[in-house]
C-alpha cells in the first residue's frame, strides 16, 4: 500500500476531518490529526489498515504548541512508517486522549511524557510519574525548565517520607 492509498482510505473513512500531510519537511509520511479525533483514527488504522505496531511515542515542545508524535508500522504488511502528529496549542493544561486501550505498548511511554513534559492523557489506566517522584518541582523536558544541578538537601522537602519511598 502506498502512502497515497493510505491517505485516500483515511479521507474516505473520515470525510469531515481535514488531514494535513507534512512529508516534505519531515522526510517521512506524516499526517496531522486533530486531537479530538485521535482515538477514532487510531482505531481505524489498527483494525482496517493493519497498523498493529506502535514503535515510538514522543513529545516535542515548540514555542507556540506541544506536539505528540506517534510512529506506526505494520508487522503484517511490512512497509514504511506512518507518523501521526497531534498539535496541542494549549500551553497551560495540555491534554490528549490516551491510545493505551488501542496499543497497550503506549502505557509507559505516555507516563513518561506526562512526567517529563506535563501533557495529561485522558483515559490512561494509571497516570503517575514514572522517572521522577511525585513531589519533583516541574517538568524537566520543557524548554523553560533550566537544567541545573541540585544538592541532596535542596530536594529533601520534596521527597516522599517513608514508608512511601
Amino acid at each position: 500500500m502506498t502512502n497515497d492509498e493510505i491517505l485516500s482510505k483515511l479521507q474516505e473513512a473520515f470525510p469531515q476531518v481535514e488531514f494535513q500531510v507534512q512529508t516534505e519537511e519531515t522526510k517521512n509520511f506524516t499526517v496531522i490529526v486533530p486531537a479530538e479525533r485521535l482515538v477514532d483514527v487510531a482505531t481505524y488504522l489498527r483494525d482496517h489498515l493493519k497498523f498493529d505496531y506502535l514503535s515510538n511515542l514522543a513529545s516535542v515542545d515548540y514555542p507556540e504548541r506541544f506536539e505528540v508524535v506517534y510512529h506506526l508500522y505494520s508487522m503484517k504488511r511490512g512497509g514504511g512508517v506512518l507518523v501521526l502528529k497531534v498539535l496541542l496549542p494549549d500551553r497551560e493544561k495540555p491534554e490528549v486522549d490516551s491510545v493505551t486501550p488501542i496499543w497497550p505498548g503506549a502505557n509507559y511511554q505516555e507516563r513518561e511524557v506526562y512526567d517529563l513534559m506535563g501533557i495529561s492523557f485522558n483515559g490512561h489506566p494509571d497516570l503517575r510519574r514514572i522517572m521522577l517522584w511525585d513531589g519533583f518541582p516541574g517538568h524537566p523536558l520543557r524548554k523553560d525548565f533550566e537544567n541545573r544541578t541540585y544538592t541532596f538537601k535542596e530536594l529533601e522537602p520534596t521527597r516522599p517520607k517513608p514508608p512511601d519511598w
Binding site: L116, R129, I130, M131, L132, P140, L141, F145, N147
Partner: peptide, 12 residues
C-alpha cells in the same frame, strides 16, 4: 517502579 537511574540524558 522505574526511575532509580534516571539521569536526564535527553535534556542534557
Amino acid at each position: 517502579m522505574f526511575g532509580y537511574l534516571h539521569r536526564g540524558l535527553e535534556k542534557t
